[in-house]
Design a protein around this nucleic acid. Structure first.
Lengths: 202, 202
DNA sequence: ACCTGAACACCGTTCAAGT
DNA sequence: ACCTGAACACCGTTCAAGT
């Protein structure tokens, strides 16, 4: 499978990230050790420090890769459609579906596994995360322009939508809420609550 | 300070839980080691296993204690009042305030630090957590009875309210949402969105 | 119902020496 | 740009022996 010698295989950095993603998905980040990771990837234990300063740095890269996967999962062609409600529905369903299908990954992304210093930057650190959020803000703005939502701070409205999806995802994957049969009902109600709650009142 | 001999001090089990709570609050659960904990409490390293099967068992007890603290924080005398909106507001504010004031504790409570098996029990494991949730369900039911909320599955409605508060808390304490000046606006909008979204339509 | 002290397997990380 | 192999400090956990 390897392209060249036993020593130097093509792209160790990407292999580490990709394999770590698989291992976290399977068993959670708590069981991810550098020893297992390097063994799985076929590298030596110290090779990892050629590409990453520490385990935390590696995890940050894995988180970044995970946000790219999430972005791909929820990216539906919302640009063409004029039906914002349907766009919100699709995005929300894909978002929660991603969390349910990848609970360990989702926990790693938001679970504060790495002590990230956000005090200084004063902005969302992860670029992929920021991009996804700004897409949501744009959609909210469009909903305002079309008269679906009342005119208000679009960032706050987007934050609230995100909070609902994030909260639902977390409660579901962590087993705080036991919903098996009527997951669709729960999601529908959450969506309609938000849509109705933000509707233009006249 | 100690009541009797240097060896046997009154209640080691409670001391461990209480001290662990303080240590987690200060530096997060990742930095909580049994060695530090027993040293802080003045016990030997192996003494911990007289009261807890493992570190995970200890953490579960600490989480339980944390839920009791949360329950005390959000418990407002909602029984007397007939103003459900005000009750929701008080509960929500206290809930988020607890999370913001105790981010490390809150993360421990919901952060899946201990791999809890919920598949078998099929119900919320933590008793304190269940109690708080059922209080919320009762309040939602009351709001339905009084005609504030539309008639629907009260459990789902309560879940959605909890999701919003939980999502907001997580995004805030983990720095995904940088809100400093207009935190009140964010909370007000989240509350009004839910109240309006669940209102009886007629 | 604790204590001391030693031991174990397992971590992340570093380093000297090779290719 | 990797490798091997050894080492370090730090974990959770166990155990034999005391009081």
């Amino acid at each position: 499978m390897k392209n060249d010698s036993t020593y130097h295989h093509g792209n160790l950095k990407d292999s580490l990230i990709e394999t770590a993603l698989i291992m976290v998905k399977k068993n959670g980040i708590k069981s991810l050790t550098l020893r297992d990771l390097t063994k799985e990837v076929g590298a030596s234990r110290s090779a990892i420090y050629r590409h990453f300063e520490s385990k935390d740095t590696l995890i940050k890269a894995v988180i970044k890769a995970a946000f790219e996967k999430l972005d791909n999962s929820i990216s539906v062609d919302i640009a063409e459609s004029d039906d914002e409600i349907n766009s919100f529905r699709k995005i929300g369903i894909n978002y929660i579906k991603f969390a349910i299908d990848n609970p360990n990954i989702y926990r790693m992304m938001f679970g504060h596994e790495v002590g990230i210093q956000r005090e200084e930057s004063c902005d969302i650190e992860n670029e992929e995360e920021a991009i996804g959020f700004h897409k949501l803000i744009a959609l909210v703005q469009k909903a305002q322009d079309n008269g679906l939502f009342k005119e208000d701070n679009a960032i706050l409205q987007a934050t609230i939508i995100w909070s609902m999806m994030h909260g639902l995802s977390n409660l579901l994957i962590d087993g705080h809420v036991i919903i098996k049969d009527n997951l669709d009902d729960l999601f529908d109600l959450s969506l309609s609550t938000i849509i109705n709650g933000m509707k233009k009142t006249n």
